[in-house]
């Protein structure tokens, strides 16, 4: 049982990094950002290109590039934000466009970044690499920071207000546009951090853009659209289901099991675990 708890926790932390930005954008702006995986991949690819020249500074540049893309996307979406279908079409087109650009530039082969920390630690018989542990710690810190920012700071309260009712928020003098922009920025940075850590543990390829989107989408739908807390819980839930099935039964059933749980939850609670009206 202990190995399942350890492996599930680490994988859950990584999944949280992937999904939290996606849910934040939807929760505040009601924006289905289908280009979320692009933030993730861009930071990884930029870091990969610059690593031979800048070393680990390239990781910072990678995250910055995601942030810049996030800001660009905010300005692209702004005029059509009220039209959800248009937003989906625009962000999905952007994701496909960038996927093609990456494919033409780097080919279909996966790329990865050398890990910042080498070696591994043994936890009750489970070898956990230092980078996985780092990712888990970073994920936890970011979750705490995000929760603290939203519940305790002024800007966080503004974000909460806009996510509840942006017209009322506007009436009470909240700069809604600034909140939208900031949310997109935070979302892209979270995905960017996820991308550079993910590429150190695993690898990314052009298909990662859509694969990550699907993973994030599944987590967010299970957790409840727009609920950051729900995303965190569902990321760990999916992770533990996959790990337990793989460990106790057979790896081939792990994805099927997690999909069945998602469907079952959505039948019982169509709004997801923590979804609200």
């Amino acid at each position: 049982m202990l190995p399942v708890l350890i492996i599930g926790a680490i994988w859950g932390g990584i999944l949280t990094l992937v999904a939290s930005g996606f849910t934040l954008t939807f929760g505040v702006g009601r924006i289905f950002n289908f280009a979320h995986g692009t933030f993730f991949a861009i930071s990884a690819y930029v870091s990969y290109i610059l690593y031979p020249h800048l070393g680990y500074l390239s990781v910072v540049v990678g995250i910055l590039s995601s942030a810049i893309l996030g800001l660009m996307l905010y300005f692209m979406v702004k005029p059509i934000r009220e039209n959800e279908i248009m937003v989906i079409l625009l962000t999905l087109s952007l994701a496909l466009l960038i996927e093609q650009v990456i494919l033409l530039t780097f080919g279909e082969d996966p790329v990865s970044i050398p890990p910042i920390f080498k070696g591994s630690l043994n936890f009750f018989g489970v070898e956990v690499t230092s980078t996985k542990l780092l990712s888990f710690i970073v994920a936890i810190i970011l979750i705490v920071l995000l929760e603290f920012t939203i519940s305790r700071t002024r800007i966080g309260k503004e974000i909460s207000a806009v996510s509840q009712d942006y017209e009322s928020a506007m009436i009470v003098g909240i700069n809604v546009e600034r909140v939208f922009m900031l949310t997109m920025l935070i979302s892209s940075i979270l995905a960017g951090i996820g991308g550079v850590l993910y590429a150190q543990i695993y690898s990314v390829n052009p298909e990662s853009i859509l694969e990550i989107l699907i993973v994030a989408f599944a987590i967010v739908v299970l957790g409840g659209l727009g609920s950051v807390k729900g995303s965190i819980v569902s990321a760990f839930l999916i992770s533990y289901i996959q790990t337990a099935v793989s460990y106790f039964s057979d790896a081939r059933w792990s994805e099927l099991a997690s999909l069945l749980v998602i469907i079952a939850v959505l039948i019982v609670r169509p709004k997801g675990l923590f979804g609200v009206e």
């Binding site: 492996i7 990584i14 489970v126 460990y247 790896a251 994805e255």
Partner: peptide, 20 residues
């Protein structure tokens, strides 16, 4: 005999089984 699904990324569970 471990069959891995097409999109499997994390192999900690597989290597733990190998070890055990």
């Amino acid at each position: 005999d471990i069959a891995i699904p097409p999109d499997k990324t994390n192999f900690d569970d597989v290597f733990t089984v190998v070890k055990e």
